[in-house]
């Protein structure tokens, strides 16, 4: 069985005209395609908006589209890893101090 092929592209969506401004969105497209046998196939596609370029009377501006949920989850994962590291450090110090005291 061959490994699935992954393709990542940044594609421009159709510009949006709103309130005298022109918004040019871009989307990250991640495609995973594979064949699990001679007559079987699968495909997974993820579309994630990444930014909008605004063209207006004030000029051109690039605006990032944040993923607040992913950011919050990443922060929580980092906090969890920090708790584990600090706890292991304390446990190591306690073991070291008790070893010296004996």
């Amino acid at each position: 069985m061959a490994l699935p092929k992954q393709k990542i592209r940044v594609m421009a969506a159709t510009p949006i005209e709103v309130a005298g401004r022109r918004l040019l969105p871009s989307v990250l497209v991640r495609t995973i395609q594979g064949e699990t046998g001679p007559e079987s196939t699968f495909q997974i596609v993820q579309l994630r908006p990444i930014s909008v370029v605004e063209e207006g009377p004030d000029g051109t501006r690039w605006i990032e589209i944040p993923n607040a949920t992913t950011h919050a989850l990443s922060m929580m994962a980092a906090a969890g890893a920090g708790v584990a590291v600090v706890s292991l450090l304390i446990l190591g110090l306690v073991a070291l101090m008790r070893g010296k005291a004996d």
Partner: peptide, 8 residues
């Protein structure tokens, strides 16, 4: 954010 997949 959209994702889809299929297999056959």
């Amino acid at each position: 954010a959209i994702s889809y997949g299929f297999g056959m």
